[in-house]
Every structure is written in C-alpha cells, then in structure tokens.
C-alpha cells in the first residue's frame, strides 16, 4: 500500500508535467486543427531558458524562492516569444494551404529547434542547477513528497486555474472558443482570427516553458533532444483526454503520468515509453474521441 501511494504521488507529479505540455497541443489543435509537433521542443527550450536564467541570476549558488519564480517567469516569457515567432513565420504562411503542408511544416520546425538547440547549447547534457534545495516531507504511512514535487503541484495547478479563468471569463478566451468553433463565424463577430491564433500559440508555449522548468527541478539533465519523448507522450495525453478539450488534456496527462510510474514500478522500466503508445492504441480502438471528447456533432 505504501509503495502504491508513493507511486501515485510520483505519478501525479510526472503527469502534471505532461498535462502542461498537452494543454498546448490541445489548444492549438482546437483552433487550427493542427498538431504542432514542434511543441515538445518548445518545452526543451523552456528548460534551457530556465538554465541560462538560473546562471544569470546566480540562483544555483544562493537559491531563494524569488529567484526561482523569476527564472520560471523568464522562461515562460522567452518561450511565449518563441511561440509567437513560430506561428508568425512558419505556420501563418501556410495557413491557407493543405493541412498536410502545415503538418510537414510542424515537423520541420521541430527539427529546426532540435538542431538549432544542438548548435547553440551543444550536444552534451547540461545539469539544471538546484534552484530549490531539495527536502523530503513525510506524508504519513511511509509516503514522502519532496518540496520540489510540492512546487510542481502548486505551480501546475495554479497555471491550470489561470488558464481556465482566461478561457472561460476573459474576452480573449471567449474569442478563442468562438474561433475553435468556426473561423468564419468568429470573423463575422469582428474577432481578428489571426490575433487569437497568435494568442493561443503564446499561451501554449508559456505552459510548455513552465513544464520545462518544473520537470527540470526533478530531472535536472537537459539536452536538445529532451523534448521529443515528453512531447510525444503529451500529445498522446491530449488525444487520450480528447484532443481540443482543455480539461481532457489535464486528465490525459495525469493518466499518462500515473500509468507510466505504475508500469515502471510494478512491471519493468523498459516499458516506460511503450505504455504511452499502448494507451494511444487502446483509446483509439475503444473511444477514438478521447475520454472527455465529444464525438463530432451532427449539424442541425
């Protein structure tokens, strides 16, 4: 029982990371029907931006919460800018072309970011500094949680609540929902569809950046290819929850994280990555629209 609960705690923390990345996939899909395959690489950039920001602020030598928050913020702003640039210069020019063109562009951007990262940051893994000193806190029944896990938990949930507020209650969020329903109808309301698409990319990229920094707290080894596997898994998480569905992405991420940790703990670590794709195949067989996704509605 103790082991199971401990795995659950670890799975939830891992899953929240996936969920943050999955949100970006699902939002962009909801608005453009595009799988932004470069999204995992934005997550990688988030970790690197955090890494350099940590060096700059000297947070590695004398960590304090303010610096850590600053690092998170710098990384999010940096990736928001990257998201803006990707959308403006890679996806916007092919907006009117076929969906296949957009998909190939996405793969191209992904390769560009990975190899650009290789060029800029070097191929050797870097170690994300301990911007928060680790301590373990017992939860009772032999289960412990690290303060880093608590930070991941609190920050992820706060960001998700902020996103929820933006989508449900702000003018831009309502416009996002309108655009995701129909670009034509949204344009007829006077909504600048282009601006909302940009906004969505920036928002998604900022969440990926946060995931990059938060995950690096626990797994400090960062390198330019680190975004590929988490990116794919987060994509699966988004599909699992129902792509285009925001709560679905969170649920999918959590299921993915917990499943992965359980498989590693009870079966074998070699299955760590396979489980993601087993889940993908299962959901596509059983419920292709995802756990929370609506099957495409009939037009009345």
């Amino acid at each position: 029982m103790t082991e199971f609960l401990q795995q659950l705690v670890n799975g939830v923390t891992l899953g929240l990371g996936y969920a943050l990345i999955a949100l970006g996939y699902t939002m962009v899909y909801g608005i453009l029907r595009l799988i932004n395959f470069a999204h995992g690489d934005v997550y990688m950039l988030g970790a690197f931006f955090g890494f350099y920001a940590a060096r700059l602020t000297g947070a590695a030598v004398e960590p304090n919460p303010l610096k850590a928050a600053g690092i998170l913020l710098i990384s999010m702003v940096g990736c928001g800018l990257v998201g803006f640039l990707i959308e403006r210069f890679a996806y916007k020019p092919v907006r009117k072309s076929s969906r296949l063109a957009a998909l190939i562009t996405a793969i191209g951007v992904s390769l560009l970011l990975e190899n650009g990262g290789l060029l800029l940051f070097g191929a050797d893994p870097k170690f994300f500094p301990q911007i928060v000193r680790a301590t373990n806190i017992p939860l009772g029944m032999g289960v412990t949680i690290s303060n880093q896990q608590i930070i991941i938990l609190v920050v992820s949930v706060a960001l998700m609540l902020a996103l929820r507020f933006i989508v449900l209650n702000t003018r831009a969020g309502k416009a996002m929902r309108a655009v995701s329903y129909s670009h034509t109808a949204a344009a007829l309301m006077g909504i600048s569809v282009d601006r909302i698409i940009t906004f969505t990319f920036v928002l998604g990229s900022m969440l990926a950046a946060a995931a990059g920094v938060l995950v690096a707290l626990q797994n400090p080894k960062i390198e330019p290819y680190m975004g590929i596997m988490p990116g794919l898994k987060a994509f699966v998480a988004a599909v699992l929850g129902g792509i285009g569905n925001i709560p679905g992405a969170v649920l999918g991420g959590l299921v993915m994280g917990i499943a992965e940790v359980m498989v590693v703990g009870y079966l074998s670590p070699t299955w760590r990555d396979a489980i993601a794709f087993v889940l993908l195949i299962l959901i596509l067989l059983v419920r292709p629209s995802g756990l929370l996704g609506q099957p495409p509605a009939e037009k009345v």
């Binding site: 309502k174 929902r177 309108a178 329903y181 129909s182 034509t184 109808a185 007829l188 509605a297 037009k299």
Partner: peptide, 9 residues
C-alpha cells in the same frame, strides 16, 4: 448561411 451559431456556447 447555415446560421453558424456557436453550438457549444
């Protein structure tokens, strides 16, 4: 044409 109301809202 087709009304295009936001069906989910």
């Amino acid at each position: 044409e087709g009304r295009m109301v936001f069906a989910n809202l």
